[in-house]
Design a protein around this nucleic acid. Structure first.
Length: 702
RNA sequence: GCCGAUGUAGCUCAGUGGUAGAGCAGCUGUUUCGUAAACAGCAGGUCACCGGUUCGAAUCCGGUCAUCGGCUCCA
């Protein structure tokens, strides 16, 4: 099972109407709440959102924030795509304005490209001296000066290539030397024959000084630089020319621009808010996971609460898989290198492998980056009949990959993670149904997790690359199978050449994180190649050997990444079924702790010996308090008793910060009446209830 | 890996060449409290690490490590 792909930063056209729904759902940095929450407010809002989004599946609001901000306020209700909007042109012109400032501040700078992007713009430049963050205010100030000159932006079309080349060499260089045209000449070469070659020029003279800038550019632009008022330079980065590490690394300056000051401010606020949703921050605050340099880069340690979250997710998926005929298997973390030579990993996946382990002179072992060869070994360990197929082998497998240091990102991209992997060995006549079955399972999983806003991506072979195994015919068959299944299910997808696994094409589900980066989550892959490499067989009805087809699939993708994503989507306020602590019981004073323990036992559905109980006379026996029998409910509710000697206010505050879905406050009145004071994460104080009444409430919360 | 930035107490941060600071968390004591921070005291740091400059370095310089943002949005 291969998981690949860096975060995609693609411009996408989205539902602007979602903004309104989202503001309702997420005003003033309130956490997002899942749509399956029981609270009336949330339910009402969810219905409104669903109304707004009619025509598509209900989409989770987190995703659109950044983009809808990017659309700009008064365009929010318009239907034109971002790429055709005024804002897009404004940002494009802002990129030119920045380039103009750079040519004035750094004569001789070689300009490369400067497009508008989803949330702003950038310009890539080649400059001997490094641009540092301290330099940004200076560049920004020069941009403001130039904007104030309100230069008209004029389009010029070159008659032919020769003229275009002349303009680049003589005019775009602004007298700063022909070598500054280096990248522009390469860009001109890349323009297809017959396409119009245009330039955009802006100039003015102030106090006798001429300011001029002209750039090879497809456009379009706004009309005057004076319109560029609300912008900010954001950050610096290195970026390879044409995205290829073999090329020179250029300096990239990112900026953003908006049509109004309010929108700019709103966007900057959004980025601040997103920081608070960062799974790495929440992961520490909520006690989910940690990392330590003493352990190593990208090797997370899962803390008790994070581990419970993982187990809850695994339990859920495992039960769904049992329903669908999957069989669990367990395989080791390391294997002989020969196994992975045969699969092709050693050649195609080498740069992601941890260094090999030599075992004397006998053998060399590697830490597994994928589980497939093991499952293949299990399949081929016995003769299979056509009646046995499909065989579905599932494993929550821990894999290790040597991600580049700069690519490691919390638990979203780490070096040791758990895949909810499975391999289906199917007959050709079963392929379509099994593929559809997998996608159906993925939909069940995503619904349960509240992730309704995703897009599907069909990763296909990059024809110019040699990193793939297998012949073209197998690839064509596999790709066609995926396309057919999607068509049959009415699933829209985009095609992304070069994003296939090395052994076959794949359908990935892409979901956004808090600040708008797309991550590959679930994946399903059709593979004709590994069965061939491993010479897999089954005996057909005709008594002859046939070759099965493999489906690789992982609905979460990576358990680690999925938990990171969920943490950001929910801003740490996990739905009840996932919350590491579902109910916190808050005794008002010491004398209420025994009652709290009794409540805890009832809620846990069985008697749990608890060392802390010994301190409290009469504690732990629910009958002492007349709590009575409860209706059968979910076993093993995750309960915590906050028996610190702190004020109630403080206990509430801290449990709220830990995003515990329900608090039960118990004091004298409750001990007398056999009730609990219920407080919900979303709606606050709900007043006293019987335990049974509270559980009804919990049932609604799911 | 590469470009840029950051690294001071468990956490969030102040401290720009002259005796290491605050809030929260922790510990101790007092308080036993009904819906988002009780009060007081105590303790806690090789200022990431190594080297250099200096009478003197958290602060200046060099290196290393780690973390953060970015590195196929293609005129």
């Amino acid at each position: 099972m291969e998981l690949r792909g860096r975060p995609q930063r693609r411009q996408r056209n989205r539902h602007r109407r979602l903004r309104a729904a989202e503001r309702e759902l997420w005003p003033n940095r309130r956490r997002l709440v899942p749509f399956d929450s029981s609270t009336s407010r949330v339910r009402r809002l969810a219905c409104e959102a669903a109304d707004l989004l009619r025509g598509g599946s209900l989409r989770y609001p987190a995703r659109s924030t950044i983009h809808s901000l990017g659309q700009g306020g008064h365009h929010a209700m318009s239907t034109i795509p971002y790429e055709q909007s005024h804002l897009y042109r404004l940002r494009h012109s802002a990129a030119h304005l920045m380039a103009q400032a750079l040519t004035e501040l750094y004569p001789g700078v070689k300009l490369a490209i400067g497009p508008p992007i989803e949330n702003g713009f950038y310009y890539d430049v080649d400059l001997d001296e490094p641009i540092r963050e301290d330099d940004l205010p200076k560049i920004e100030e020069r941009m403001r000066e130039l904007a104030r000159l309100d230069q008209p932006i004029v389009k010029r079309v070159a008659r032919d290539r020769d003229e275009a080349q002349r303009i680049i060499l003589e005019e775009c260089t602004l007298g700063q030397g022909e070598e500054t045209a280096l990248y522009k000449l390469q860009l001109l070469e890349a323009v297809p024959d017959g396409e119009e070659v245009s330039f955009f020029e802006q100039q003015s003279s102030a106090n006798g000084k001429l300011h001029r800038f002209i750039d090879l550019c497809r456009g379009p632009h706004i009309e005057r630089t004076g319109e560029i008022e609300h912008f900010k330079l954001m950050s610096l980065a290195g970026a390879y020319w044409r995205g290829d590490v073999k090329n020179k690394q250029l300096q990239r300056i990112y900026g953003t621009a908006f049509e109004t000051a309010e929108e700019l401010e709103q966007y900057l606020n959004f980025l601040e808010e997103a920081k608070r949703r960062d799974h790495r921050v929440l992961g520490r605050e909520l006690g989910l996971f940690m990392s330590s340099p003493k352990v190593g880069i990208g090797l997370p340690l899962w803390l008790p609460k994070g581990a419970i979250l993982r187990e809850t997710m695994i339990d859920f998926l495992r039960s769904e898989q049992v329903k669908r005929g999957y069989q669990p298997v367990v395989t080791p973390h390391i294997a002989s290198i020969r196994l992975f030579e045969k699969s092709g990993h050693i050649i195609t996946f080498k740069e992601k492998l941890f260094p090999f382990m030599e075992e004397g002179e006998h053998d060399t072992y590697i830490l597994k980056p994928m589980n497939c060869p093991f499952h293949i070994e299990i399949y081929s360990s016995q003769l299979r009949s056509y009646r046995d197929l499909p065989i579905r082998l599932a494993e929550f497998g821990n894999v290790h990959r040597l991600e580049q240091t700069g690519e490691v990102h919390g638990i979203m991209r780490d070096r040791g993670f758990t895949q909810d992997d499975a391999h289906l060995f199917v007959r050709p006549d079963q392929l379509l149904a099994e593929f559809i079955g997998v996608v159906e399972l993925m939909q069940v999983v995503l619904n349960k997790l509240g992730l309704t806003d995703f897009r599907a991506r069909l990763g296909t072979k990059d024809p110019s690359s040699d990193k793939y195994v297998g012949d073209d015919e197998n690839w064509a068959l596999a790709t066609a199978a995926i396309e057919q299944a999607c068509k049959q299910m009415g699933l829209d997808y985009e095609v992304s050449p070069g994003d296939a696994a090395f052994y076959g094409p794949k359908l990935d589900l892409m979901i956004r994180d808090a600040i708008g980066r797309d991550w590959q989550m679930g994946t399903v892959q059709v593979d004709y190649n590994l069965p061939e490499r491993f010479d897999l067989e089954y005996i057909g009805e005709d008594g002859k050997p046939h070759r099965p087809i493999m489906i690789h699939r992982a609905p979460f993708g990576s358990l680690d990444r999925m938990i990171g994503l969920l943490t950001e989507q929910y801003a740490g306020a996990f739905p009840y079924w996932l919350a590491p602590v579902q109910v916190a019981i808050l005794p008002i004073s010491d004398r209420h702790v025994g009652y709290a323990e009794a409540i805890a036992r009832r809620l846990q559905g069985f008697s749990t010996p608890d060392l802390q109980l010994a301190q409290f006379e009469g504690a732990g026996d629910p009958d002492v308090y007349g709590l009575g029998l409860l209706p059968p409910g979910e076993d093993r509710r995750r309960i915590e008793i906050d028996h610190r000697r702190e004020t109630l206010g403080k206990k509430i505050r801290e449990n709220q910060r830990m995003k515990v879905p329900f608090m039960l406050i118990v004091g004298d009145r409750d001990m007398e009446a056999g009730t609990v004071g219920v407080r919900s994460r979303e709606d606050g104080d709900l007043g006293p209830m019987s335990l049974a009444g509270f559980l009804d409430r919990v049932e609604q919360a799911g």
